[in-house]
Design a protein around this nucleic acid. Structure first.
Lengths: 193, 193
DNA sequence: AATAAAACTTGCCATATGACAAGAAAAACT
DNA sequence: AGTTTTTCTTGTCATATGGCAAGTTTTATT
């Protein structure tokens, strides 16, 4: 029996036929990233996106005061993409960096466009994925307003436990909009309960 | 000379041909909303979206403690849509309410799908619009972490001056993630400079 | 194994913003 | 025009979180 392609999981619950999936998957190229290497850097225009087969990745921006702010974490099965830069063809403000050695499946913009415009269910899938990212961002954004830091942390632990276990405290802290000092105290408080 | 359709402005800089634009525009239906009426309510699934010809609209959620949090403001030329609910066909958590009497142009999901799948440039346009919303949300989200309340307010004044002039302080405050009390003080401080 | 570099914790104090409540002003309604 | 309701302002005090710096622990490097 043949080994299933990793991307068959990713495209698991789309409406694409077996054949459509095969066509799409055949266009992806396996690439690897060493820990700390960049998938995308500020000022460049994203020309690829990836699905992660293994490893951890984060995106971040440098704010006006020079602070590093994590905007997202990515792990196995996730799509790694800078939506605005990839689709609007603009230089990005974000950096995307491997937090560990990673194995990914890569697609470039031109090939994406071919698939998007030729396969109806591929574009439905793409739209669903983008809207899913939008939704996650909105939830995070509302959480920043409605919830206390401790609750935001607990939510992250629940939603992405493997991220919390594998990523340094300072990156998690900036993602939650607090300092590493505060997060350390929050962890202490939770531990003592 | 014939009066141009309002939506010709909205679709101004797409790659759609005159004919394609005409087809798309012909599918929109003019609707009006009275002040305080709802375009969408929590628990329902969005089956339409709109472009605003005149008036002001806001979207908001009720958080776990019962607080009303404004998630966005919309004014002339803007698209008013709950992306996740409209595309994922899920009940929404958001409410969309007219802040003044409004004139809008409405499209339903089914008609949208027809246009999306039949007109290449319509879907390019739609994708661009969605990515634009994503980008705006991301900027707002980062601003919540990186900037002080006063700076967030000043940015809003710069980006949406007509909103600041026409919307009540408490709605602006929750959008900025602060209380109306704090915003009142921030305004006072700015005025005294 | 030794050393250097990160990552994490903890203490002390500062500060932005919140909570609540009372007035003042403005807007909506009859 | 008068009354009610909503919006906005201001005072006092509380609190979540930040800033900084000194340790400690863990991880990476030679």
């Amino acid at each position: 029996m043949t080994q299933e392609h990793f991307l068959n999981n990713v495209f698991g619950k789309t409406d694409m036929t077996k054949e459509e999936k095969a066509i799409a998957i055949s266009k992806f190229k396996q690439v690897t990233f060493e820990k700390n290497s960049f998938l995308l850097e500020e000022g460049k225009t994203a020309n690829h996106y990836w699905f992660i087969q293994s490893g951890f990745i984060r995106s971040y921006v440098i704010d006006t005061e020079g602070n590093d702010i994590t905007t997202n974490f990515y792990s196995v099965g996730d799509i790694v993409i800078d939506w605005p830069s990839f689709f609007l063809r603009n230089p990005t403000r974000e950096n995307i960096q491997a937090l560990s050695d990673c194995v990914c499946w890569q697609l470039d913009f031109e090939t994406f466009q071919e698939l998007f415009h030729s396969i109806r269910n591929f574009r439905e899938q793409g739209r669903t994925t983008l809207v899913g990212s939008y939704f996650a961002l909105k939830r995070h954004s509302i959480s920043m307003i409605a919830d206390q830091a401790k609750d935001r942390y607990l939510r992250l632990v629940k939603e992405k436990p493997h991220v919390v276990q594998n990523v340094s405290l300072k990156h998690i802290a900036t993602f939650l909009g607090i300092t590493d000092t505060s997060l350390s105290r929050i962890r202490k408080e939770i531990a003592s309960e």
